[in-house]
Design a protein around this nucleic acid. Structure first.
Length: 295
DNA sequence: GCCACCGGTGGC
DNA sequence: GCCACCGGTGGC
């Protein structure tokens, strides 16, 4: 992926403004299928890509951020986490559009294919919640993705200018009580959100009722990718952001694809084969998007 | 001793 | 049934 994206260490979220378009996915080529995914209301969204499962990147941090153009529904990589946060915070009132990407990708237009694809088997995608405010100055919002099979998809926390990570609103409350100076600087509870992203693969997270598969080592991201065969649909309509990890396994695409296609109305032609590319591969350069989409 | 991870559970 | 919070524990 691009170098730009590599900087990101954490993910954020995105928003999905209500749109009037009918398509919603990132797919260019398979645009249609994407429609199914988001179907109904189209909204623009943001997506994130998690760091590699390997040991290199900071754990399961999100590496790539993307936002969906409200007009063409294609996804555009966002140059920095900060920019991403800015977009996210106001995405509802100020929907993302390809034009906004000109700041870091001057030539991109709605005719260019999405910068990201869900097909990228090496990535795990998750949709983030909308309306998450930017972290207060000096604070950093962190999202740690848990390995597949956990009862929870991720852990959201905030790292204050000083002190340790805060894991909940209650923690924040306490922190603010103990740090009047922060309050004096304008930091308030409403600036924090511990909502976590939703994995595209529904079975990524273990249901309470199910036992963990003893055999399956929950190594983490790697497994993620492969699992779902069943269609797991995410409510794109409701979703706002996507994140992806990169497991070393191939075969994810399909899963991802099915996951997405799965959503309610799939009109796709072929259930399995169809691989909606909602997100195009990050591989693609942000700057030089491939040929035109088809929409 | 501190930090991060993971599981369990209470509350909605 | 799902989600968020929090405690326990293992690893560094």
């Amino acid at each position: 992926m691009e170098s730009n994206l590599e900087n990101f260490s954490s993910a954020e979220n995105s928003v999905s403004p209500p749109f009037r378009k009918k398509k919603n996915t990132l797919s260019d080529e398979y645009g249609d299928q994407s429609d199914n995914i988001l179907h109904q209301e189209e909204e623009s969204q943001l997506s994130l890509e998690l760091a590699e499962a390997s040991n290199q990147a900071p754990e399961n941090s999100i590496k790539i951020f993307a936002a969906q153009c409200a007009q063409c529904q294609n996804w555009r990589l966002v140059s920095t986490k900060k920019k991403y946060e800015e977009i996210r915070e106001r995405i509802q009132e100020d929907p993302f559009a390809c034009e906004k990407a000109h700041e870091w990708n001057p030539d991109v237009t709605c005719n260019d294919p999405s910068d990201v694809s869900q097909e990228d088997s090496s990535k795990i995608w998750a949709i983030d919640k909308p309306n998450i405010p930017q972290a207060p100055l000096g604070w950093e919002r962190l999202i740690k993705i848990r390995p597949k099979g956990n009862t929870q998809f991720a852990d959201v926390s905030y790292k204050p200018p000083t002190g340790k990570r805060q894991r909940s609103l209650k923690d924040i409350e306490k922190y603010l009580a103990d740090h009047p100076e922060s309050v004096a600087q304008g930091v308030e509870l409403s600036q924090f959100s511990f909502e976590m992203p939703t994995p595209l693969q529904k079975d990524y997270v273990r249901k309470r009722s199910q036992k963990r598969q003893s055999d399956a080592p929950h190594t983490g991201r790697t497994e993620l990718l492969q699992l779902d065969e069943e269609a797991q649909h995410i409510d794109w309509a409701a979703a706002s952001v996507l994140m992806s990890l990169d497991p070393a396994q191939p075969s994810i695409d399909r899963a991802a694809a099915s996951a997405q296609g799965g959503p309610r109305d799939n009109n796709e032609d072929h259930p399995e084969v169809a691989q909606p590319k909602e997100l195009q591969e990050p591989t693609t350069k942000p700057d030089s998007p491939p040929p035109a989409p088809t929409a």
